[in-house]
Simulated assay, not measured.
Amino acid sequence: MISRIQSIKDVRTLAVAIVETIPEPFVVLDDKLSVILASRSFYRTFKVDPDDTLNRPLYELGNRQWDIPVLRDLLERVVGETTPMENFEVEHDFPNVGPKTMLLSARSVPFDGKRNPTVLLAFVDVTDRRLAERQKDDLLAQTEELLRQKNVLLQELQHRVANSLQIIASILMLKARAVSSEETRHHLEDARLRVMSVAAVQQHLNSSAAVDKVEMGSYLSKLCESLAASMIGERQAIAVRVMADDAEVDSGAAVNIGLIVTELLINAIKHAFPTPRADAQVLVTYEVDAADWQLTVSDNGIGKPEAAMSPGLGTTIVKALVEQLDARLETSAGPKGTTVAIARTTFVSRYPFSATA
């Protein structure tokens, strides 16, 4: 191919043919940055005529849309230098075309050691790309704002629910003090404790950055502390301990686990220590192994099996909650106390502990 080029005329013919076939807008400038050749796509894209383009400085074309000080400085640096200009972005509302975003790349090409080089200038239309990027950014911003509003609404709802639960618990306490029936008083007190266990979840959600997650160690510790303060009097000193792995669970599961702990702790405090003991204690543990977990409530009381899961509403509640959690329940009782374990799948405890440990 090269051997067939016999003259400067042949070289120019070849150069013109190459430029005209380039699909993107493309111009050839002299060392004064005047247009000496332009591709058909340049004329077509910017809707200009060759008579209004050739032999005119780039900065005078059209309505002087290319008369950009930074662009002028970059192109003048390109002339005679080996360092090209790449992807200089220009946004402009072009006559008869409309708003366009173009990426400009330029390179200086010397011929036969001449001091006056030629500058090749290519244009890439990224209007649609930039529009898509802006739309994506706008959509992302709108999504983030909707998520923010959702979180605000959820936190407000949780705050109101927590306040409502506290009011209900207070009403139940007042009713329990007002009734004369001892059995009714116990039922009202148990109902108050169940409400408190749900309220504890809401308090954790309000104080947490995540609106749907509960940190189990802190949650169980505060729940048990609150239940113990409500149920254990000065006459009977029962220590309630909590051992929990660092783990977060969704708020729905946390409510179920909290209700289970409430029922089992109520049973242990009521039935495991019929007479005062100096070493009386209840141990609540929560262990996690990947997707599996185990909740255990054990005491060092009298060890009667019926004490762990006494018949009635509490037993029904616990069994229903265990089923919702897709877990299994095991109860063991002996001379050293009673243990109730609720485990997800085939969890194996790492600790051979008991309430006396």
Rank of each mutant, 00 (worst) to 15 (best):
V90E: 03
D52G: 13
S164H: 15
E20M: 12
L154Y: 05
L104V: 05
V27I: 02
E20Y: 00
Q203R: 15
N55L: 14
E91L: 06
L103Y: 05
G233P: 00
D51F: 14
H187A: 10
I238R: 07
H186D: 11
V119F: 02
E183S: 13
R72H: 02
E89I: 09
Q166E: 15
D125A: 03
R12I: 14
V198Q: 02
T296S: 10
A209P: 15
Q135Y: 12
S207H: 10
N96I: 04
L174Y: 12
A191Y: 04
A106W: 02
Y43Q: 03
P99W: 04
V240H: 14
F42S: 03
T262I: 00
V90K: 04
E287I: 02
Q155S: 13
D31S: 08
Q281C: 10
L54G: 03
L139Y: 08
A200Y: 10
L172A: 06
M231N: 01
L75S: 08
G62V: 05
D279Y: 01
I168C: 13
T143I: 09
P117D: 03
K175C: 11
L172E: 02
F88D: 04
Q149R: 15
L61V: 03
D138N: 11
T338L: 08
V282R: 08
D289T: 09
P110R: 03
P335A: 15
A141Q: 10
E76D: 07
R130L: 00
A15N: 12
D138S: 15
M173H: 15
P305G: 07
D137E: 15
V249D: 07
Y59S: 08
F353C: 07
S180Q: 11
Q236R: 13
A320V: 06
A210I: 04
S197G: 09
L147W: 06
L157E: 14
E263R: 07
R177D: 14
I232D: 06
V119G: 00
A191S: 15
L71V: 01
Q203L: 10
E144W: 03
V124M: 13
H92N: 15
V97P: 13
S170K: 11
L295M: 04
R72Q: 11
A169N: 09
V119Y: 06
K100Y: 03
D212Q: 12
A280S: 09
D137S: 13
G314H: 01
T346D: 15
A278S: 14
E89L: 10
L74K: 12
A291M: 07
K32I: 01
W66L: 00
R177P: 11
T345I: 09
K213L: 11
A162P: 00
R115G: 05
R344K: 09
V297N: 08
V78W: 01
L325W: 02
E156C: 08
G62R: 08
T345E: 13
P84L: 07
R115F: 04
N267F: 02
D52L: 13
Q236E: 11
V340P: 08
A132V: 05
V124Y: 10
A200C: 13
D52E: 14
T345V: 10
I168G: 10
E89A: 10
L139T: 06
T296M: 09
E24T: 06
S197D: 02
S221A: 12
L227F: 04
D49F: 07
A239D: 10
D138C: 06
A254K: 01
F353I: 02
Y43N: 01
T83Y: 13
S332P: 00
I22V: 15
E287H: 00
E86T: 07
A38S: 12
S207N: 11
G301M: 05
A228C: 08
S354C: 12
A308C: 03
